[in-house]
């Protein structure tokens, strides 16, 4: 049933899966819909079920678990301050009191719960994003956006950002090396006047180079017949949706909808 993915970029495993083979348009609509629905849930249990479902899909897609965890690792850095801050500023039942000299900090249960809810929503959104980018090549994703009538200008801006981020990083690296080759030492404080001056000149030079490069890119576009009007989405080749696409898309959206419906009335465990 599952065929190997025709083209895989970035970080996902080379083996394909049903989810790799799924039409990118379906994946975009289903996963964005899933995130929109799940991130409005308030019950911890429903949010956990959302995460479990995404982990199930990720395991079907056979994505590299270590890389998924690595991508999510920064949420730990965000969640710590979030829990502390929200449990301090949200009024409610006191849970823990911390005395620092004359100051008394009171953490509330409601605040901790709110922070956990936000964290679980964030995890749902990030896992869905991992699933989307892990099973869809960048070119397929852009093609899907075009076919879904996302404004061409937005798609082109995303493409250019991805394409030229690498070029500017290389340029910055070369400029940095050129400065180091002439005795510039890194690692001094930014407050050091000479270091600050050199780094600000570096940023300024990069900005000017970016401007001249953008001009050359524009002329290169004109030279190949670009006249300012976006290419119609119909021009891009695309396969017709099949039953498997619709089934998977429906399943992903149905799961999110069921969680919502359960939370709206049937669910009784949201006091967890």
């Amino acid at each position: 049933m599952c065929k190997p993915a025709a083209e895989i970029e970035f970080w996902q495993r080379k083996e394909g899966s049903c989810l790799h083979r799924l039409d990118p348009r379906v994946k975009v609509v289903a996963l964005i819909g899933f995130v929109a629905l799940v991130t409005t849930l308030t019950s911890l249990f429903s949010l956990f079920l959302g995460i479990s479902f995404l982990i199930f899909l990720i395991s079907i897609a056979r994505l590299d678990t270590r890389k998924v965890i690595k991508r999510l690792s920064w949420t730990v850095a965000v969640s710590g301050p979030l829990v502390v801050l929200l449990s301090l500023v949200t009024p409610g039942t006191p849970w823990y009191k911390l005395q620092v000299g004359p100051l008394v900090f009171t953490f509330t249960l409601e605040g901790v719960r709110l922070a956990v809810v936000l964290l679980l929503r964030l995890l749902n959104a990030l896992l869905a994003l991992c699933l989307l980018t892990g099973t869809t090549s960048f070119s397929e994703l852009m093609l899907a956006f075009r076919r879904l009538y996302v404004p061409s200008l937005v798609v082109v801006l995303v493409e250019f950002t991805i394409r030229y981020a690498a070029v500017f990083v290389q340029e910055l690296r070369r400029m940095f090396l050129a400065r180091r080759a002439r005795g510039f030492r890194v690692g001094r404080s930014l407050l050091d006047r000479a270091t600050f001056l050199t780094l600000s000149q570096l940023v300024g030079a990069l900005l000017l180079r970016s401007l001249t490069r953008s001009e050359r890119i524009y002329f290169a576009m004109l030279a190949r017949g670009f006249n300012g009007s976006p290419v119609r989405p119909e021009v891009y080749p695309v396969a017709r949706l099949n039953k498997e696409d619709l089934l998977w898309g429906g399943l992903i959206l149905a799961w999110a909808l069921i969680l919502h419906l359960l939370e709206m009335g049937v669910w009784e465990w949201n006091k967890l």
């Binding site: 960048f138 070119s139 852009m142 493409e159 250019f160 991805i162 394409r163 030229y164 070029v167 490069r213 050359r216 890119i217 002329f219 290169a220 576009m221 030279a223």
Partner: peptide, 15 residues
């Protein structure tokens, strides 16, 4: 163009 990074601006070679 002289610098291919000015001319090759799309996300993939095919595009």
């Amino acid at each position: 163009f002289q610098d291919p990074d000015d001319q090759v601006f799309s996300a993939t070679v095919k595009e």
